[in-house]
Design a binder for these strands. Structure first.
Length: 385
RNA sequence: GUGGCCAUAGCUCAAUGGUAGAGCUCCAGAUUGUGGUUCUGGUUGUUGCGGGUUCGAGUCCCGUUGGCCACC
């Protein structure tokens, strides 16, 4: 169920609520990425404390390791990782193409060797949905091919044909009843939502065709894929703009793998409701922190003696207790607490940004908020102690 | 005391007598459906010191200082 609560009169920004089996998600929302059944370096308790509403996990990674036997044994991913909030599972199409040693792609599915021990495996649209049913995620994604950037028109068109065929089979597989049974109960679990994925690379006509065909099949939400693959920001926004007009207003839109803080606001203004991105967690592990003024590489020597927090006035647990100088030391010494503290800060930053965005849309001030935030955010701004 | 080996970047070490380099550290940059990864740049030298041979010496010769090893 997806209810629109407020809309911005001057842009396509929406404030809405998506209800899943494990609770409601207030949108626009950022979803922390927990590929292997863990948002790297933080616990589910910490995620709850910073008000994460939903997290991601990855079908391909969990299929390869620990595998479905473990998942069945533990009664699904929620119980396995001890997270009782909503989970969205990416189908693994992206990983099959980026990680696995490819054997063969056919209309039937993908034969591949996994990146862990090279074991051959096969994933079809039906199998992808079956795995996600076993994982018990609240939102499942269809299996798709994510073409590279740049990409020739002919390749993008052929890839889209295959992906659309797969989307139809995913829908059919779900209707045929691969939905998860509620572990340990007689009652059937609440229905798993399924999102289609718009592809079409950088070509507006393919994007439109993709969106319209998916809507024809009918999904609970629509993702915009084929972005965050190395394309320049203008291409990324164009991909959003050429997909969104053909998606229904009463269903959530999800920009896959995106983005930077300003990019998220630009996409909210273009009608996107949901985001996932590894930037806050990955960059944290390399020492980069997100601030209102831009990013900061905390490994830089200039922070060695600074006693202030990562960001003045920040309400995250790291800023409450630790200095830039200490965190820099931890990162230089490769102490795991350092990347943990920055991860907590960055996730708090992303989640708070979306909370402020929701508030701005509700109060009719999104335009000003967007302008103010994007205007003051610089990639190389260096704040002083 | 005698004999031998060694001395080059902050560290560990390369360099047929022909423009002194590498790895690590250090200083920066990249990272968008995960990459604690990886990649890309950059700083640093009176080649222990003093002489000599040579067109040219980190390299050959003499002396000297320091370290290590072996033997009286």
């Amino acid at each position: 169920m997806f209810e629109l609560l407020a809309t911005d009169p001057r842009s396509k920004a929406r404030r809405a609520r998506l209800t899943t089996a494990h609770g409601a998600i207030e949108t626009p929302a950022f979803m922390p990425v927990g590929t292997q059944g863990t948002v790297k370096a933080v616990t589910p308790r910490e995620l709850r404390e910073m008000k994460a509403q939903i997290i991601l996990a990855n079908t391909y990674h969990l299929f390869v390791r620990p595998g479905m036997e473990a998942m069945k044994n533990f009664g699904g991913l929620h119980r396995f990782m001890n997270w009782d909030g909503p989970i969205l599972t990416d189908s693994g199409g992206y990983q099959i193409f980026s990680l696995a040693r490819l054997r063969k792609i056919t209309d039937e599915g993908v034969h591949f060797q996994n990146h862990v021990d090279g074991t051959p495996a096969f994933i079809s649209p039906e199998i992808a949905m079956q795995i996600q049913a076993t994982l018990g995620s609240d939102i499942a994604m269809v299996l798709d091919e994510c073409p590279p950037w740049p990409c020739e028109y002919d390749y993008a068109a052929r890839s889209l044909e295959m992906t659309l065929g797969w989307a139809g089979r995913c829908k059919k597989a779900v209707e045929a009843g691969v939905s998860p049974a509620a572990p340990g109960t007689a009652a059937p679990a609440a229905r798993q939502l399924v999102f289609g994925i718009v592809q079409g690379a950088t070509f507006a006509d393919l994007r439109r065709k993709s969106a319209e065909a998916l809507v024809q099949i009918g999904f609970d939400g629509y993702a915009i894929g084929g972005v965050s693959v190395g394309e320049p920001e203008e291409e990324m926004l164009r991909a959003i703009e050429s997909s969104e007009p053909f998606l229904p207003e009463n269903k959530p839109r999800y920009a896959m793998g995106l983005g930077t803080p300003p990019q998220m606001l630009e996409m909210v203004a273009r009608g996107v409701d949901m985001f996932d991105c590894v930037l806050p967690t990955r960059l944290a592990r390399n020492g980069t922190a997100f601030l209102a003024a831009g990013t900061l590489n905390l490994k830089n020597a200039e922070f060695a003696l600074q006693k202030g927090p990562i960001e003045e006035g920040c309400a995250c647990p790291s800023c409450a207790e630790f200095s830039r100088g200490y965190i820099r030391h931890l990162m230089k010494a490769e102490e795991i607490l350092g990347l943990r503290l920055i991860t907590l800060h960055n996730l708090h930053f992303y989640l708070t940004l979306m909370e402020r965005t929701r508030h701005a849309i509700e109060t009719g001030s999104f335009g000003d908020f967007r302008k103010q935030f994007v205007g003051s955010y610089k990639t190389r701004e260096i704040a002083t102690d």
